[in-house]
Design a protein around this nucleic acid. Structure first.
Lengths: 208, 208
DNA sequence: GGGATCATGTAACAGGTTACATGATTCA
DNA sequence: TGAATCATGTAACCTGTTACATGATCCC
């Protein structure tokens, strides 16, 4: 007897992935609507976001369908003479407020800075410099809390004196890597906020 | 719009993922053989590698099958009285040399340090301290090259003077984040090699 | 008697990568 | 005449996550 599984969507609870939000972002930047082929250019080699996220046409069209299902965009078929007809997607009010919410929210983990945070930064800067400043400030606070927490954990580990045993040594290495990466992110965020050159930020790292 | 296509990739056998190598590593550490249930303990909460990689039983058994298909382990059914019979996997000679090869190879990208490199470090230290020293040295060299390359790119960007335009500013931010993260990894690797405390390494960052 | 432990898996779902299908039109 | 552009997808194949199936024995 096969039991049907409780169809509560685990995936729907999580928000859509950063790629979907990037699509939403480009639609808003381009006056609120656009079609797949046109959007693909923003992810092709040479485009600024291409250094951060890769998005093949297949996935692009997939995300557009998902955005439509979520009610953040509305599709309309546009027939052209001498050209294949296209699906034009327009951002809805829900889509706009979702993008705004997402752009203001910092990422929780340091490793997400490389992808998700950079995408947020790109659109926040293009759409609203105040929002960008707020995003950077909140991300800074999140990273600073993480640095405190990691420092405390590292101190605890050293107080336990297990750092000389192999497993303790490894645990210490893991924490110290995380700490180093998060501190680097923190000083990079300071740089973003002030526009100061790189060397200044590196020097500042020694003081924190 | 041109889409660059790489037709060679199809049949090219990618290596097994870091999780599979971690399993191989534990088998070697535990005298060359073991079974799934036992291996699962090394990935359960509280185990040292659990801070780095998460591996549910389902994936663990999946990887064991793949290791067997690759010829790196050989399975044998062991019947026990009073206990369910188990599949005991023994590492083959091919498996041993593959592990050794993998453990000596540095990771190419900075983001792989958080997962793949830490796993390599864990097993290299447990199996052969000379191998660990070599791994760290080679990873250091790889990161140092990356730092040079990223610095050069950043300098180029600034020489072009596009850093004031929105897209140029973004490209600069992306590069400077990568540079900061790779520099942090580099000084962490120095720490690993010397065993110096964290503060020393942070100070040293200002000099490089 | 009931939960924890031993032991190995499968099913369904989620998400991404790579290659290719389709077919018109425009341009060198 | 054939390559590139316009435009939207599908198919096959990976990896990974979560939950559950199965059934014994050990410990309280």
């Amino acid at each position: 007897m096969r039991r049907t599984r409780d169809p509560i969507r685990r995936g729907a609870q999580r928000g859509l992935p950063p790629a979907a939000h990037a699509i939403l972002g480009f639609l808003v930047v381009e006056h609120g609507s656009g079609h797949g082929y046109d959007l693909a250019r923003h992810f092709a080699a040479g485009a600024p976001l291409a250094q951060v996220i890769r998005l093949e046409p297949g996935m692009l069209y997939h995300h557009l369908k998902r955005l439509e299902r979520a009610g953040w965009v509305a599709a309309d078929r546009e027939v052209q003479s001498h050209r294949p007809s296209r699906r034009v997607y327009a951002v809805t009010d829900d889509g706009r407020s979702e993008l705004r919410r997402w752009l203001g929210e910092p990422v929780v983990q340091t490793r997400e800075i490389r992808l998700t945070f950079l995408i947020k930064l790109y659109f926040a800067r293009r759409l609203d410099s105040g929002l960008a400043a707020r995003l950077i400030a909140r991300q800074r606070a999140t990273c600073a809390r993480l640095v405190s927490s990691l420092s405390a954990q590292l101190t605890d580990l050293e107080r336990q004196g297990t750092a000389t045993e192999p497993d303790g040594q490894f645990a210490r290495s893991v924490l110290s890597l995380r700490l180093a990466q998060t501190r680097a992110a923190l000083s990079w965020l300071d740089e973003l906020a002030t526009g100061a050159p790189d060397d200044t930020a590196v020097t500042r790292l020694g003081q924190c």
